[in-house]
Nucleic acid binder design. Structure first.
Lengths: 353, 353
DNA sequence: CCTCGTCAGGTAAGCGCTTTCCTCGGAGGC
DNA sequence: GCCTCCGAGGAAAGCGCTTACCTGACGAGG
């Protein structure tokens, strides 16, 4: 393995000069030497040791990202935005999957701290778990105290720069839309109870219910994993318990798609007999049948803004920006069937996007 | 920022002892000192500098992964498998997105090399571009010569450990299924021409055509980006050019889903008037309507096997394993409509998975 | 009683780079 | 013609850690 010393030796210069030329430092260097060194680099196929560079240099370069799971489209979209900004700034990004395990999340913060990343972006729901939250906060602060920058997405527990999606408002929009269509009781397919994303969105749903003079009872809420299969299972339980339900709100699109599969399996027409609304507006949502009504969150943009915050010079106080939730009505929602539970395939919009 | 020296000082021991205790090295250390050091670590909230560790230590720990785009479900699935194995081995994985840019791919190989990763897994199609391929090969060899391990997924150009999906065979299976159903000419929605994945799958399609006494002409092949929108656009062009087409094979599921959107938009019944088959069997494929017939590739397993190869002790010769392609018929394929182009909504299977 | 082995613990030499500070030669000023 | 200044290049001091090697004390064996 060729080292800088090898290059210097071959070019007949000191390592100092070689280093300057390779990193084209501001210090002026003669043209002849420059060429000799560059030639040596090419001949030796020299690749500088990034760890040694990091150690010797003052500034940090890579940035770390902790998400629940990149293979979840929600995070995939966010990650795309994060990546783009980081790449534009010439930063390597290290992606870590916590798989929604708080311990792993803590471990990754340490790991990124240890690797001297310039910034950590924490994407994904917080936990309703005070001890864990406190530990996370400590670690983040410690990291910041060493010069690291932190930006979080959608978690209020850490006081620092943050992009927070309007989860509560989005939940409100979803339920409000359903009530406006004429539904009177809506079933909810929720993610894990201990995630703040779940409770925030649920709170919005509740507020809409109250405003419309209804209530969301536990009987109408099913908790499950925040993915397709969770949604499918929750839909099944919900329907078994409340056969006359005319509307279902899923707390994310993956779950909604699982619910759709369940409804299809049972031969229940959507939106003729049951309306369904999701949350997030994942790209695939337009491609299922019927196309999913949902609450759009500007996922990629959230990533872009979070990384911009993280890469920005630290400000005096913490910056908290909101990401707007927006109702998107497609084909999966319609007024409830007229009493007698007849099939009623009317749609809020023509199918096909 | 607390350093090992700070910890040692506070505990009243040498850095050597502190290091031994923290990394619990085999060298025996007295219980009293151990406790003092551990206490100091806790009080100072010491986080070892990973770069310094890497520099000082002999062995490497992190592994790098280069994919086209994690947010593409195809790579998301593979990445999940890669991750799992890496995590089980206690390795941090650094994920890099090349966005199908060969230059970026080369840069990332250097970068991972520079960071002294223990292994590099290259996932994603190779390019029909001899100079780039040669440069990549050089870089990979250089990296290997410094002790790095390399495993590639689905690229034959690098002689080393590899998992190669049966792309040609899969293409054959897709076209064969269509011909067996009675279709006589099939349109193809292909990915970028310069990707080996495209040409390999296409070659399989061609072989099936030959065996069934047909030919795939350029008139029936449309190239586009390997994603949903590419598929949608290609389907439109294909249909405009060949209005009487009864079957379409898309070279991956994302494109197939785009094609489905195009067909839906034009009110063309699938599979009644046109059959559609995809490739890869992404998780979402069962959830579109009709559920997509496709050629399944064990994506996550491919990731698992590739990472296992990369983390294994190097063998004498290169190991090349194949990942089996398997035909999965769902609702999007059926026999062609009987001559007169009447609608014929018969299906190969009942809908709903 | 002296020597040797053993073992806890410390000393210090790197790992591969960056960067400060120093040197040295030549050009310019008086 | 001498002194100063400047600029190209080098020597060397770290960056924070690991680990081979050394030390010194103590118990055992001769």
């Amino acid at each position: 393995m060729a080292t800088l010393a090898d290059v210097a030796r071959r070019a007949g210069v000191s390592t100092a000069t070689a280093s300057r030329i390779i990193n084209n430092s501001p210090k002026p260097v003669g043209e002849a030497l420059r060429e000799r060194v560059l030639a040596a680099v090419a001949e030796l196929e020299f690749v500088p040791n990034a760890n040694a560079q990091q150690l010797a240099r003052a500034h940090r370069s890579a940035v770390g990202v902790i998400v629940h799971d990149v293979s979840d489209p929600y995070f995939a979209e966010i990650t795309r935005g994060l990546q783009r900004v980081a790449t534009d700034h010439g930063r390597l990004v290290i992606i870590c999957n916590s798989y929604r395990d708080p311990e792993r999340e803590l471990a990754y913060v340490d790991l990124l701290h240890a690797h001297q990343t310039a910034a950590i972006v924490l994407a994904g729901s917080g936990y309703h778990d005070a001890p864990v939250t406190a530990r996370l906060d400590r670690k983040l602060r410690l990291y910041e105290s060493t010069g690291g920058r932190v930006a979080v997405i959608g978690r209020h527990e850490h006081a620092g720069d943050a992009i927070v999606p309007e989860n509560e408002h989005g939940g409100y929009l979803a339920a409000d839309a359903l009530y406006r269509l004429g539904h009177t009781t809506i079933g909810v397919i929720a993610g894990p109870k201990h995630l703040t994303t779940t409770t925030d969105r649920l709170a919005g749903l509740r507020r809409a219910a109250r405003e419309h003079g209804h209530r969301l009872t536990t009987r109408h809420i099913e908790y499950a994993g925040f993915d397709r299969n969770g949604g499918m299972a929750a839909a099944a339980r919900l329907l078994d318990r409340n056969p006359s339900l005319t509307a279902i709100a899923a707390l994310n699109d993956s779950m909604a798609i699982g619910a759709l599969a369940c409804l299809r399996e049972r031969g229940i027409d959507v939106p003729g007999r049951v309306s369904l609304i999701g949350f997030d507006d994942m790209p695939i949502s337009v491609d299922v049948t019927p196309p999913l009504s949902t609450v759009r969150l500007p996922l990629e943009e959230i990533g872009v803004r979070a990384m911009s915050l993280a890469l920005r010079e630290p400000q005096a106080g913490p910056t908290v920006e909101h990401a707007a939730a927006e109702l998107v009505l497609r084909g999966s929602t319609a007024p409830p069937p007229p009493a007698g539970r007849t099939r009623r395939p009317a749609r809020t919009r023509p199918p096909g996007d």
